[in-house]
Design a protein around this nucleic acid. Structure first.
Length: 811
RNA sequence: GCUGGUGUGGCGGAACGGCAGACGCACAGGACUUAAAAUCCUGAGAGGGCAACUUCGUGUGGGUUCAAGUCCCACCACCAGCACCA
C-alpha cells in the first residue's frame, strides 16, 4: 500500500464530506476534547505539533467511535509577544505575517488528518474575537476586579521595553541577555487574589495531574497565621507583623521592616538616618530577583526605634533589612532566632539575642533549654501544648487585648495585564481628566487596533503616539479624553477561548449561555505542564468570574487535564522543536506517511512522560501496518464456512480479541497509547497463529479481521479507511462503533498458577479456572515436585490467590 | 534550601502488593530464495552447568509482609517547579 498517496485522497474526501461534523442537536452524548491552541509561528509543523495534536486527535477518534458526539475545535493564539517578535524579526507587519502564518498552519493541520471542527475556529487577533476580550475586561472593571495601580515591572534597558515575567531568565532579558531592572509604572491588574481561596478549594473537584494541582497550590501559597500590632514606645506608630508562628511571640527579639515600607521614614531616628538611607539606596538597586539569587547573607541596619511586645511588654528594636519583602503580608516581620532559620541567620550577623520563651498550659512562661542556634525547638515537649494549640491560645489572647487578629495570607499576586506593546488587544478604557478611567461603552466595542507601522517597543504603548487613535471624547461627560495606550497580556485572550469555541461566531454576545452550559466544561484538556501557573490558573479565574456574573453555570473550565510529555532532542535532551538531524516532520510524513509517524509516536514513548526522539521505529511501524494489511487481505477472501465451532484454537482467538479490546479501551482512556498498541500487536500475532490452522472458522476469522481494522482506526485513520474500502466494506470505518469486549470470552477453562513453598516458586501448574481454593490446594499437592518439597515438613500456613499463586508455608 | 517527580535488560518501555522484563527494536537460529532484501517461525535478563538445574537480579542501605519494582524509613543521582512568602 502506498501510505503517502492514500492520505491525501482520504483527507480530501473526509473534508468534502464533513465527516467529523459536530452535531449541535445531539448534545446529550457530547465529548469536548481540546488541545491547547498554539501561536502561529509560520514554520512548518514540527514533531511537537504531531505529538500534541496528532495523538490527542487519536484519543478523540477513539471517543468518537465509542459513539460520542465529538467536539474538537481548533484556533490560534495570535496576539502577543511570540507573534510580535516574529514580525519584528522579519520586518513584516504583525497583522500580515500572523494572518499569513495562520493560513499556512491551518493547511498543515488539516493535513494531519485530524477530526478538528474548523467551523468553530477562533483567532484571537481578529476584531470579532477580541471584541469579547474587551467585553470581559469591561465586566471585570465594572465589578472592581480590573484596576490600575503603580507597581514595579520588569524593564529591559537594551530593548527599551517592559517585558513579561516569563521573559526574565535568571534576571536577564531572554532576548538580548541584558540585565533586567525594576521600574515603577502604572499598570492594569486583575484582582485574581479575590479568588485565591476558590482557586485553591476548586482543585479538589477536578481530575488533574497531582503535580499540577500542587504547583497551583504552592503558587497560591496559602498561609494561616496572625497579625500582631507592636506599638512604638511613644505610641505614635503601630507596626503590624504577620506570623504563622504566633506561639513563638515571647521569643521576639527584634522586628524587621522592608526597605520600601512606607512607614519606615517615620521610624528612623536622627542618629541612624545616614546609615539607613544608605541601606535603602543600596537595597533599591537590587530588585527582588537579584535579592533572591544572592546568598543567604543577611544584611540590615538598626532604625533607632523600639517597639513594645503587646504580650509581655518587652522592648524590641526595629531593624530594616532587605530579606523582608514589602509586597507580602504587612512587610514587617518579627525576629525569633530560635524558631526560624532566616531569623537565625540574621541573629548570627547582628548578634541579636536568641530568646526561647514559650507559654505553657496554664499560661506560665517556660524557658526552653538552650540548644544550638538555628535549631527549631519542638516546644510541645516542654509545655505539653502542641504548636497548634499554643497558636490558638495566643491568638485568643491577642484578640482580647485588641493587639492582633487571625489572618490568612496568600503568595498569589494580582495579575498584571498591561503591556506596552503594539500587537495585543487594546485596553477598552478612556482616561478623562474629569471622570478618571472610564470603560468604553459596550455598544462601541470593539476598540479596533489601528494598523500602524511604527510599532517598535520603546517603553510606552506604541499606540500612544497615534493621535487619531488616542483622542476621543469621554463617554460620560463628553470632555476631550485619551484612550489607554497599552494592550492586554495575551493570556487574557486565551483565558476564555475554550468557552467561546462552541459559539465562535456569535456577534451579539460572548456566547449563548444556554448553549455553553450544555457543551462545556471541557471533558479533556490536553497541553503542556508549563502552563500550570499561568494559563491554567487564569482560565480557572476567568471561568469563576463568568460564573459569578451568571454567564455559565459551572466554575471549573477543565474537568480533566492531561499533560503530554515533551519530545526531546536526543543529543541535547532539551525540548526539540524544528528538526532532528536535518529531518523535519514533513520528511517523515513524505517518506512513511503520517499514520506511521503517529503510530511510532504512540508506541515508542509513554505519552505522559515523553522522551528523546529516535526515528528507527518508523520503518517498523510501517512494517507492522503491512503485516496487518497482509492478514486482512488474505482473510478477506475467506468464505463463510463454520468449519469448526469452539475448538481450542477458536477460543484462543476469541480470547485474544476480547482481551485486546478490553485492554486497548482502558489504555486509550488514560492516554496510555504505547500499551494499547502493544495489545493490538498481540491480537495480530494471535491472528497469524490462527492463520496456520488448516480448517478455520471463517466467520470468526472475518469478524476478528473487521475488529482489527476498527481498533487501529483511531491510530492510523488513513490506513484503516483504505483497508476498509479494499475489503469492500461501506464507507466509512470512522463511522463504525468501537468494538466492545465480550467478557464471556475472557473465561478460560484452565489457568496457570505459580506454586510456591516458603515463598519460593517450585513449579507452575494449570488448574480449572472455576475451582475452589481447597480444590486448587488439593491439585497442587498431587504434583510430584510439590510433594518432594513438602516431604517431612509440617504445613504452617496455606495462601491461595485465585488465578495467580499458591504459597505453602512449611516448617 | 523547599516542594514534587523519576531511577527496571544492549535500547524504547510493560507490570490492581502476587510468576519482573508485556509489546517492540537490536541480536541469534530456522523456513522460503540461485542469492540478498522482504516475509513467516523459533530462541533469548545476567552468571554457572552438556543437561536436568542452580545462583544473582528493578539506583544504594535498612524495614514491614507468606509475598516488595510496587508500601515505610534513610541515602545517592538526575529532571522539573518555587526560590528569603515570615
Amino acid at each position: 500500500m502506498d501510505f503517502v498517496s492514500i492520505e491525501k485522497k482520504w483527507n480530501e474526501k473526509w473534508e468534502k464530506d464533513n465527516l467529523y461534523k459536530f452535531d449541535e442537536n445531539k448534545l446529550d452524548k457530547k465529548y469536548y476534547l481540546l488541545e491547547m491552541f498554539s501561536y502561529p509561528s509560520g514554520l512548518n509543523l514540527h514533531l511537537g505539533h504531531w505529538w500534541n495534536f496528532g495523538l490527542s486527535d487519536s484519543f478523540g477518534r477513539f471517543k468518537r467511535m465509542q459513539g460520542y458526539n465529538l467536539f474538537q475545535p481548533m484556533g490560534f493564539d495570535s496576539f502577543g509577544l511570540p507573534a510580535e517578535n516574529y514580525a519584528l524579526k522579519t520586518g513584516i507587519h504583525p497583522e500580515d505575517s500572523t494572518l499569513r502564518n495562520i493560513a499556512t498552519m491551518e493547511k498543515q493541520l488539516r493535513n494531519i488528518g485530524g477530526t478538528f471542527n474548523w467551523d468553530y475556529e477562533v483567532v484571537t487577533c481578529k476584531p470579532e474575537y477580541y471584541k469579547w476580550t474587551q467585553w470581559l475586561f469591561v465586566q471585570l472593571f465594572k465589578k472592581g476586579l480590573a484596576y490600575q495601580k503603580q507597581a514595579p515591572v520588569n524593564w529591559c534597558p537594551s530593548c527599551n521595553t517592559v517585558i513579561a515575567n516569563e521573559q526574565v531568565v535568571e534576571g536577564l532579558c531572554e532576548r538580548c541577555g541584558n540585565e533586567v531592572i525594576k521600574k515603577n509604572m502604572t499598570q492594569w491588574f486583575f484582582k485574581i487574589t479575590d479568588y485565591a481561596e476558590r482557586l485553591l478549594s476548586g482543585l479538589d473537584q477536578i481530575d488533574w495531574p497531582q503535580k499540577t494541582k500542587i504547583l497551583q497550590k504552592n503558587w497560591i501559597g496559602k498561609s494561616i497565621g496572625c497579625e500582631v500590632d507592636f506599638k512604638t514606645e511613644d505610641k505614635k506608630h503601630t507596626l503590624t507583623v504577620f506570623t504563622s508562628r504566633v506561639d513563638t511571640i515571647y521569643g521576639v527579639s527584634w522586628l524587621v521592616i522592608a526597605p520600601e515600607h512606607p512607614l519606615l521614614p517615620k521610624l528612623v531616628t536622627k542618629e541612624h538616618k545616614t546609615e539607613v538611607d544608605a541601606y535603602i539606596k543600596e537595597a533599591a538597586k537590587k530588585d527582588e530577583i537579584a535579592r533572591s539569587s544572592t546568598e543567604n547573607v543577611k544584611t540590615g541596619v538598626f532604625t533607632g526605634t523600639y517597639v513594645v511586645n503587646p504580650l509581655n511588654g518587652a522592648k524590641v528594636p526595629v531593624y530594616v533589612a532587605d530579606y523582608v519583602i514589602a509586597s507580602y503580608a504587612t512587610g514587617i516581620v518579627m525576629g525569633v532566632a530560635a524558631h526560624d532559620t532566616r531569623d537565625f541567620d540574621f541573629a548570627k550577623v547582628y548578634k541579636t539575642p536568641v530568646v526561647q520563651v514559650i507559654e505553657g498550659k496554664n499560661g506560665e512562661k517556660v524557658d526552653l533549654p538552650f540548644t544550638d542556634y538555628g535549631r527549631l525547638i519542638n516546644s510541645a515537649e516542654f509545655t505539653g501544648l502542641s504548636s497548634e494549640e499554643a497558636k490558638e491560645k495566643i491568638a485568643d489572647k491577642l484578640e482580647k487585648l485588641g493587639a492582633g487578629r487571625r489572618k490568612t495570607n496568600y503568595k498569589l499576586r494580582d495579575w498584571s495585564v498591561s503591556r506596552q506593546r503594539y500587537w495585543g488587544c487594546p485596553i477598552p478604557i478612556i482616561h478623562c481628566p474629569y471622570c478618571g478611567a472610564v470603560a468604553v461603552p459596550e455598544k462601541d466595542l470593539p476598540v479596533i487596533l489601528p494598523k500602524i507601522h511604527d510599532y517598535k517597543p520603546e517603553g510606552e504603548g506604541p499606540l500612544g503616539k497615534v493621535d487619531s487613535y488616542m483622542n476621543v471624547k469621554c463617554p460620560k461627560c463628553g470632555a476631550d479624553a485619551r484612550r489607554d495606550p497599552d494592550t492586554l497580556d495575551a493570556f487574557v485572550c486565551s483565558s476564555f477561548y475554550q468557552l467561546r469555541y462552541p459559539d465562535a461566531h456569535n456577534s451579539k454576545e460572548i456566547f449563548d449561555s444556554k448553549k455553553i452550559n450544555k457543551i462545556c466544561p471541557i471533558d479533556t484538556y490536553v497541553g503542556g505542564v508549563e502552563h500550570a501557573t499561568a494559563h491554567l490558573l487564569y482560565s480557572r479565574f476567568i471561568t469563576m468570574f463568568l460564573h459569578d456574573i451568571g454567564k455559565v453555570d459551572f466554575d471549573e473550565p477543565f474537568k480533566r487535564l492531561v499533560h503530554q510529555g515533551m519530545v526531546l532532542d536526543p543529543k541535547t535532551n532539551k525540548k526539540m522543536s524544528k528538526r532532528n538531524g536535518g529531518k523535519t516532520a514533513d520528511d517523515y510524513v513524505n517518506e512513511f506517511g503520517s499514520d506511521a509517524l503517529r503510530l511510532h509516536m504512540m508506541f515508542s514513548m509513554n505519552y505522559i512522560d515523553g522522551g528523546p526522539w529516535y526515528d528507527d521505529g518508523l520503518k517498523h511501524m510501517k512494517a507492522f501496518m503491512e503485516r496487518i494489511e497482509r492478514i486482512v487481505l488474505s482473510w478477506a477472501k475467506l468464505g463463510n464456512e463454520n468449519s469448526t465451532l469452539n475448538g481450542s484454537e477458536e477460543s484462543e482467538l476469541e480470547y485474544a480479541r476480547a482481551f485486546c479490546i478490553k485492554e486497548m479501551t482502558s489504555s486509550f482512556e488514560i492516554f496510555s497509547f504505547n500499551t494499547a498498541i502493544a495489545r493490538l500487536m498481540e491480537l495480530v500475532n494471535a491472528m497469524y497463529k490462527y492463520d496456520k490452522v488448516e480448517r478455520k472458522n471463517e466467520v470468526l476469522a472475518k469478524s476478528v479481521m473487521l475488529d482489527v481494522i476498527k481498533l487501529i482506526a483511531p491510530a492510523t485513520p488513513h490506513f484503516a479507511e483504505e483497508l476498509w474500502q479494499l475489503i469492500g466494506m461501506p464507507y466509512s470505518v470512522h463511522n463504525q462503533l468501537y468494538p466492545v469486549c465480550d467478557e464471556s470470552k475472557l473465561k478460560k477453562a484452565e489457568i496457570e498458577i505459580a506454586v510456591q513453598v516458603n515463598s519460593k516458586i517450585i513449579t507452575r501448574l494449570s488448574v480449572p479456572t472455576d475451582s475452589t481454593n481447597e480444590k486448587v490446594l488439593a491439585l497442587v499437592k498431587l504434583d510430584s515436585k510439590v510433594k518432594n518439597a513438602l516431604l517431612g515438613k509440617s504445613i504452617v500456613k496455606e495462601i491461595v490467590v485465585p488465578g495467580r499463586i499458591v504459597n505453602i508455608i512449611v516448617k
